[in-house]
């Protein structure tokens, strides 16, 4: 049944949508590349009968911990069967929870919830006068600061699941006519979006220390643990590859006091950490 694409009416489309699928280009799978980014490009008709390209970008990460047996590896490559065959990449049957679920420990009777305490908090004095109304949603401190001013903002729990975001969350549609718009990039992924917004402002904070030659598994809490002994720290940041989530091996630590930063540099420059020798120095401001 040959249908001329030019004369399609929606009424016909409704009934014949299945039959028109042969007109579409085949599904293309690109990758996964060396960074583990896999792209699936599919074509389908949307409700108005326009041909739509759907690009789904997924990150594939091999779990190093999971030691699969030979048989299990073989099963990995089994073809899909049953209902899983026609499943399109956008079906999203499997999603990673956006909510962090904790194993909730029961508390011993009579004991109270522990409150996180940081020694020598420079904001502690400020909170004395403030009413208890002020509760930070990031660190849970009462009366210290507002959420937006939280010194631990950057230490808020990071996604550390092995598929980042729901797979296929970056589904994007573009008309094949080529409106010239390219693929949709979510605001959080846009170059310098959030980073330039909130972090550029705090980047000009003085007393910033650059740490290089970090091992790949070093996370921000590890860095905080290492540096907090020298004095109050306002920001810890480890550069992470946006696509693969792997640490890029350097980070920044901001101190409240310049003397603390200086001591940290003196002490930790050349310090052995995770089999690597750390390089700690004053962060040089960006040229721009």
């Amino acid at each position: 049944m040959a249908v001329d694409m030019g004369k399609l009416r929606w009424g016909e489309l409704e009934d014949d949508a299945e039959d028109l699928d042969f007109l579409l280009p085949p599904r293309v799978v690109v990758g996964p590349d060396e960074k583990g980014v896999k792209k699936v490009i599919e074509y389908r008709f949307d409700d108005e009968g326009n041909k739509v390209r759907v690009t789904t970008t997924t990150r594939v990460r091999n779990l190093t911990r999971a030691r699969l047996s030979k048989r299990a590896l073989e099963r990995r490559s089994w073809p899909k069967f049953g209902d899983a065959v026609q499943e399109d990449a956008g079906a999203r049957l499997t999603m990673v929870s956006t909510e962090e679920i904790l194993l909730e420990r029961p508390r011993a009777p009579g004991s109270k919830a522990e409150e996180p305490k940081v020694a020598g908090d420079p904001f502690a004095a400020m909170g004395k006068a403030g009413a208890v109304l002020m509760v930070c949603r990031t660190c849970g401190k009462k009366g210290d600061h507002w959420t937006s001013k939280c010194p631990y903002k950057d230490l808020a729990p990071q996604t550390d699941s092995f598929i980042d975001k729901p797979p296929g969350a970056e589904g994007a549609a573009a008309s094949p006519a080529g409106t010239g718009k390219g693929t949709y990039v979510p605001p959080s992924m846009r170059a310098g979006a959030e980073r330039s917004g909130t972090e550029m402002r705090r980047r000009n904070d003085e007393n910033s220390v650059r740490v290089t030659n970090l091992s790949e598994d070093t996370r921000e809490p590890d860095l905080l643990e290492l540096f907090r002994t020298f004095g109050p720290v306002t920001r810890v940041y480890v550069a992470v590859d946006q696509k693969t989530g792997v640490s890029r091996g350097f980070g920044f630590v901001n101190f409240v006091n310049r003397e603390d930063a200086e001591r940290a540099i003196n002490k930790l420059n050349g310090y052995g950490y995770d089999n690597l020798i750390l390089r700690v120095e004053w962060a040089t401001p960006r040229p721009n």
Binding site: L63, L68, W78, K80, G82, A84, E87, T94, F162
Partner: peptide, 28 residues
């Protein structure tokens, strides 16, 4: 070996999933 997870439900199709990333392998 713990690499496959089989699920049964009141719908009529038992399903098998990869147990590490939750990808659906197939239905019976």
């Amino acid at each position: 070996e713990g690499d496959l997870l089989f699920s049964c439900a009141k719908d009529h199709n038992p399903t098998v999933w990869f147990a590490d990333n939750g990808e659906r392998l197939g239905t019976y």
